[in-house]
Amino acid sequence: MKKTITLVLSALAAILVGCGKAPEAKKLSVFCWSEYIPQSVIDQFTKETGIQVSVENYASNEEMLAKLTAGGGEYDIIQPSEYVVEALIAQKLLHPIDKTKIPNLSNIAPQFLKMSFDPDNSFSVPFMAGTVGIVVNTDLIKDDIKSFSDVFKPDNKGKIVVLDDAREITAWALLSQGLAINDMSDANLDKVKPVLANWIPLVKVFDSDSPKTALLNGDVAMGVVWGGEGAILLQSDPKFRWIIPAEGTHLFIDSLAMPKTAKNVENAEAFMNFILRPDVSKKISDAFPYTNPNLAARKLLSEEQLNNKASFPSDADIAKMQVFRDIGTQGSKIDEIVTSVKAQ
């Protein structure tokens, strides 16, 4: 018994001490969404450049932000969505990008560049984009659904799944009232409160992580979900139909950026340029069916991929969409409004 304990203790000590420094190598530390950058892409980057990549994952923008602002971790690359990029720029927490190091930026379609949240792309490059739309199980729903207002009708009570995201739901309510998607002023919130009070009780499932599950299992008949979820549903069964809401919708752009504290700026820029290479970008599209903003990469995709309406909405549809701007401290209030309607 004593021997076992000595053994265990010495093993423990070895683990604690053993975390010493490795010899100085070319390094890159990436803090990204789980399941967004395939491991094969990272391995290929290491093989081509000799840069060792360490990857840390998160499951939401806000987890990343909370960890970053508390001073946790030293990252060279982060992967924020558009409104988080804006907030980080405003707080001077991003490192500027030397665009001459990223020639592949020219592969990106112009409609995804120079957006309001980072007008010169001085701090961020687009990684993947996507949208929020309506998906309908046509076996169960015969009505012609065109808009958010068509979804949130009393007849559809108990048949709807939506993203569990207070800001998204509030944005749809704003759009349905013809209000600006990013104007979350108190006056506007007062206007959409009754809309939310009508909508939210109709919803059966709130799920941001995998709303497709409830649709695939037949528990609900329609949903307002991410484009990536919609794309998987369309692939899996032709009974699902994808609809871009008539009122317009949210276009999200997940970007690559460097925190101010980045230590390996050159390696990070090399990584960004690598990701924007057509052959690499194609690999990411093969793994995850989001809207690829990379025009050169799109030429390498199959017909089937490009015809998936949830992955690739038409340019006319995209023109109707808007990106989210940072809303600062209003997020807390929106959460409270949605919680209060749910709790009734």
Binding site: C19, S29, W33, S34, E35, S54, V55, E56, N57, Y58, A59, S60, E63, A66, K67, A70, G72, G73, D209, S210, K212, T213, W226, G228, E229, I232, A287, F288
Partner: peptide, 23 residues
Amino acid sequence: SVFTTGAQSQTLPLKVYGMAKVG
């Protein structure tokens, strides 16, 4: 775990959460 670990000690739940979005 999300908040208290670094890149060298990524545990299984960190890889699994967020995986649900692609199945």
